[in-house]
Nucleic acid binder design. Structure first.
Lengths: 136, 136
DNA sequence: GCCGCGGCGTTATGCTATAACGTAATCAAA
DNA sequence: TTTGATTACGTTATAGCATAACGCCGCGGC
């Protein structure tokens, strides 16, 4: 029961539209990219997009890529992941790969423990070229 | 011979001023923060700051914090570090700690090897609270 | 000389994000 | 059923971050 690409039923109209734009794109979209796509649906102001994005990110349905000022839909089927997620961003085709590594998380925790730093949110973004683009 | 805080002699005036502003600050500064500080020195336009920052970052004398749209001076005395640097940013006092972890780098390399992704630049930024701020 | 290059200064513009206001729908407690 | 809290919405205006495009200048090599 349930499969990947489920879209929660309790999204508002704006949230659903924004998430749809993200999942329909093969690459990250800026808030203004999304807005342009959704003008035909009646959306007009950046805030409408940003508010929807805030909720989506809060629920783990989308992620913000700090190094791009852009957003992607979460690719994890059941987006309940807690903790560190790393994003590999292909600078050639724009595709974003999402992965988690518990060892990295442990190393981070170890560093935090040794310095007394309390870790909140952490972002890890790798820029480079994906296998497919290297082939070409 | 030589001590930490060396400022390379071959910086241009603008680059020196910008680096000075960064080293004199206990927290990250945005390009516009820097500009405001340097108006008294005759700088007027954002581009003057961005151009200097580009060079400083290129040489490893400063770092860009993607999650803040801001910049810090490199705290490493001899800033020739290659590879991954992680930044721990205290959301209370703004202080930024810089560290490197070879194990993390290895894990990243392993992931890259297994997927065929070619790693370029990678950014890792941890938001949280430093030990000093937790004490208070 | 003269040319290429890098840095500089300026104006204008574009992209990213939020403030501040009022409205409407929902829901639970009184 | 009124009340009040909460949450989303729509709009206008503004703030904050970054770069395009132009021309000038100074310097080193040829």
């Amino acid at each position: 029961m349930g499969h990947s690409r489920d879209i929660p039923a309790d999204l508002t109209r704006n949230q659903g539209l924004v998430l749809g734009a993200l999942t329909g794109s093969g690459a990250p979209l800026s808030a203004y990219d999304i807005l342009d796509q959704l003008r035909s649906e009646g959306l007009r102001a950046p805030l409408q997009i940003y508010r929807a994005l805030d909720k989506l990110v809060e629920r783990g349905l989308a992620h913000r890529l700090e190094s791009l000022n852009a957003f992607v839909a979460c690719t994890d089927a059941h987006c309940h992941r807690k903790g560190l997620i790393a994003f590999a961003i292909c600078e050639s085709c724009g595709k974003v790969d999402e992965f988690a590594d518990t060892v990295i998380e442990e190393r981070l925790a170890a560093w935090a423990g040794s310095t007394g730093f309390t870790v909140g949110r952490t972002t890890m973004e790798i820029r480079g070229r994906c296998a497919a683009c290297l082939g070409a």
